[in-house]
Each structure stands twice: as C-alpha cells, then as structure tokens.
C-alpha cells in the first residue's frame, strides 16, 4: 500500500546530532528506528530490532558500514540490512536521506512531534 503513495520525507534531526560511528533512536508508531552515522558521515537507518534475537541495533558498535548487535554479536550491513556470514538474515531498512545536513526518513504516514 505504501508503494502506491508518493514517497514523502520527515525530518528527524541533524547528522551532527548523532556521534560518528554511533546511532540514535527515532521513536515511531511501527517500532523504534535506529539511525546510524558512519565514520565517513554517511547515514543509514534500520529497524531497531535485529531479526535474529530482537537486539536493539542502535546500541551496537558501528564499524565501517556495519553494526555489531549488542546481544549476540551478529554483524549487519547498514546499507541493505543483510547479516554478514552464512546464517544470513536481514534487518529491515528504512529509506533515509540527508538534505543540507538534515536527516529525513522516508515514510508518508508519519509526522514529527518532538525532537531531542
């Protein structure tokens, strides 16, 4: 259904609000979203639950374009959500873009109420 609507974007904060090689959480009705900033200032977003054991990925250690889940140490590729290694599973990715230093998440159904 979402695919039928034109993509719209919601601003959630500035890139600099997230530490390099770190992540922060965006609370959303469908569940928390982890927004990552890499060492090279790229921004990615995944659902904040790993598909393997519901680990909060926003709490993991970020290295290159990867994050290591804090609960059981699975490593996920931030670009597509795939886990590294043969027992592959995939974390859900969330559309994200940066416009003039402002992070925007792509979802037509949400609006922002509060910011940090």
């Amino acid at each position: 259904m979402n695919a039928m609507l034109p993509q719209s974007w919601v601003a959630v904060g500035r890139v600099t609000d997230i530490p390099r090689r770190g992540a922060r959480v965006v609370k959303a009705p469908g569940g928390d979203i982890a927004v990552f900033r890499t060492g090279a200032d790229e921004v990615y977003a995944l659902r904040d639950r790993c598909p393997h054991g519901n680990g909060p990925l926003s709490n993991g250690i970020v290295h290159d374009r990867k994050v290591t889940c804090p609960l059981h140490g699975m490593v996920f590729d931030l670009t597509d959500g795939h886990s590294i290694g043969p027992d592959a599973c995939q974390a859900r990715t969330i559309p994200v873009r940066v416009v003039a230093g402002v992070i925007e998440l792509g979802n037509p159904l949400y609006t922002e109420t509060a910011s940090a």
Binding site: V10, V12, G13, D17, I18, P19, G22, R24, V25, V26, K27, A28, P29, D32, V35, I103, L105, N107, L109, Y110, T111, E112, T113, A114, S115, A116
Partner: peptide
C-alpha cells in the same frame, strides 16, 4: 553523552 539516552525524534501517525 546526552545523545545516548534521548531519542533523536518521536514520530506519530498523521
């Protein structure tokens, strides 16, 4: 490290 504890944003449905 305030960023560790506070969400970046909170979204609600339209």
């Amino acid at each position: 490290d305030n960023h560790e504890f506070a969400p970046l944003a909170s979204l609600v449905p339209l």
